[in-house]
């Protein structure tokens, strides 16, 4: 991680970039994007916290645990997997709940982080991009994208299991 930072800074110096000005401009952009996700994040963290307090997640993982045990996918991660393709803020809220409950450095915590980090809000992206050019037909976009998401989620659990 520090290697990437040093690499970027060295490259910037070599190319005679105004390092600090660029950094500040980018950091401001970061604040702007946080500001723009804040309202939906608040709404969805409330929703996820309520679901978690109501015992819904433990019920779901209890129901699903026989199937999940059979295919080796942790039942605790199923709600996150269902949320991830639909809403970014919602899945970050869910990931935060998982990290609090199981610990960020536990197997479940790491696998959940990798799951959320290696997939995107598929349905949102499809809606935005096709919507922008007024296309209603998506042909085989959804099947291919959902297959990719499922692969990413299985690989997330697999890679965390192998590498740690």
């Amino acid at each position: 991680m520090p290697v990437i930072m040093v690499g970027i800074v060295l490259f910037g110096i070599w190319r005679k970039t105004a390092l600090f000005d660029s950094f500040a401009a980018g950091a401001k952009e970061g604040l702007v994007s946080l500001w723009s996700i804040a309202p939906s994040l608040i709404g969805l963290v409330v929703g996820v916290t309520m679901l978690e307090a109501s015992g819904f997640f433990s019920l779901v993982s209890e129901w699903l645990s026989p199937i999940c045990q059979w295919c080796g996918f942790p039942a605790e991660l199923v709600p996150l997997g269902l949320m991830r393709p639909v809403t970014g803020s919602g899945s970050f809220a869910m990931l935060n709940t998982i990290l609090e409950q199981y610990g960020a450095d536990s197997f479940i915590g790491k696998a959940a982080s990798v799951m959320a980090g290696s997939t995107e809000t598929t349905f949102y992206a499809v809606t935005v991009y096709y919507g922008a050019v007024g296309l209603k037909k998506t042909r085989y976009t959804i099947p291919a994208a959902v297959l990719a998401d499922m692969t990413g989620m299985l690989l997330a659990v697999g890679t965390v299991r192998w590498l740690s």
Binding site: M5, I8, T17, S22, F23, A27, S33, L34
Partner: peptide, 18 residues
């Protein structure tokens, strides 16, 4: 989250500008 996110968006802006 704000600090870390701003850190990386700043670094990536340097990458973009350079």
């Amino acid at each position: 989250m704000a600090g870390v996110m701003c850190l990386w968006s700043g670094m990536m802006r340097i990458a973009q500008q350079s």
